[in-house]
């Protein structure tokens, strides 16, 4: 087996978990991916279709890892439709990771959609370090909510609280994850907030975090071609999300003019996020 993480490694989809009608988790054996750090990503090759940057999901089997896919565009839909036994390729893991301050006493995780993936990997570390952890999972509706059980299971050895918010109120608290965050940061004394999800949600998380003088770690997502710091498709200001990120702290985030405002499309043109 090649040890160079840049080489494409063939993997077989050995298990498929249906999280929601539009979200699936594929489990596969790959020693290198199983050791990915929270916040790192793989470039996942869907042969003859696409290659997508994806966060590495946890598997409970040793030497295994997983990816969690939301059916969305051309590439992710092709991936979503893959079956047991199908072949994919992966390279990586790439990027930095969430940094956990050893002094940290109380952590807050705010995630939405497949942005929950790096946060799930993070909960395992927080559990090991015995850090009191609150997770806010944001979803559109009960039907589209996932990872509640995983969050509780992964945090079994530490004090924890998993809060669900749904936009339509069909489960948990009605509203956005950031609405819940606004309320609980005033009640509890968190030191760090970790976030991953839609960028406009993260922008709100960062704004609330800054207003409350919290340390912030956000894992950002951008369109990528290379994953290794040579194409600049993923750049925000002078930072490359693939190489300098994916995780940025409050200092970096507060100077990123385009964070929550603009991204670059496949041609490299800047495009506004839809508000």
């Amino acid at each position: 087996m090649p040890t160079n993480i840049d080489r494409i490694r063939s993997i077989v989809i050995e298990q498929i978990i249906e999280e929601t009608p539009t979200v699936k988790t594929f489990v596969f054996k790959d020693e290198i991916s199983s050791k990915a750090k929270p916040g790192q990503f793989l470039m996942v090759w869907i042969p003859r279709v696409e290659e997508l940057p994806m966060s590495v999901m946890v598997s409970d089997k040793k030497g295994y890892a997983a990816i969690t896919i939301r059916k969305h565009g051309f590439g992710s839909t092709a991936l979503f439709n893959k079956r047991l036994g199908d072949l994919l390729g992966v390279r990586g893991p790439y990027g930095n990771q969430f940094k956990i301050d050893k002094e940290s006493k109380k952590a807050l995780l705010v995630g939405g959609g497949t942005g929950l993936v790096p946060l799930m990997r993070l909960t395992i570390t927080l559990n090991q370090l015995n850090i009191d952890t609150t997770v806010i999972i944001g979803a559109k509706s009960k039907e589209e909510m996932f990872f509640e059980k995983q969050a509780n299971d992964f945090l079994d050895k530490t004090k924890h609280n998993v809060i669900i918010s749904t936009e339509d109120g069909t489960y948990g608290v009605r509203g956005y994850a950031t609405d819940v965050m606004s309320i609980i940061v005033n009640k509890d004394k968190f030191d760090t907030v970790y976030t991953c999800g839609p960028e406009l949600m993260m922008k709100k998380v960062v704004d609330i975090g800054l207003a409350n003088s919290l340390s912030i770690q956000a894992s950002l997502e951008r369109y990528m071609k290379c994953g290794v710091g040579i194409c600049a498709s993923c750049c925000i200001g002078d930072q490359l999300v693939c190489k300098d990120g994916t995780v940025f702290n409050e200092k970096q985030l507060s100077t990123m003019i385009d964070f929550g405002r603009m991204y670059r499309d496949k041609s490299g043109r800047k495009v506004n996020f839809h508000m």
Binding site: I8, E50, E51, L52, R91, C226, S267, G268
Partner: peptide, 29 residues
Amino acid sequence: EPIEGYRNPTVFSLEESSYINAVGLANPG
């Protein structure tokens, strides 16, 4: 004019500290 370029994979690494790429001249125009 702007060019979107090819779909990924557009670049990947070989063992010999080399890349093969077909980005397709993607550029903002």
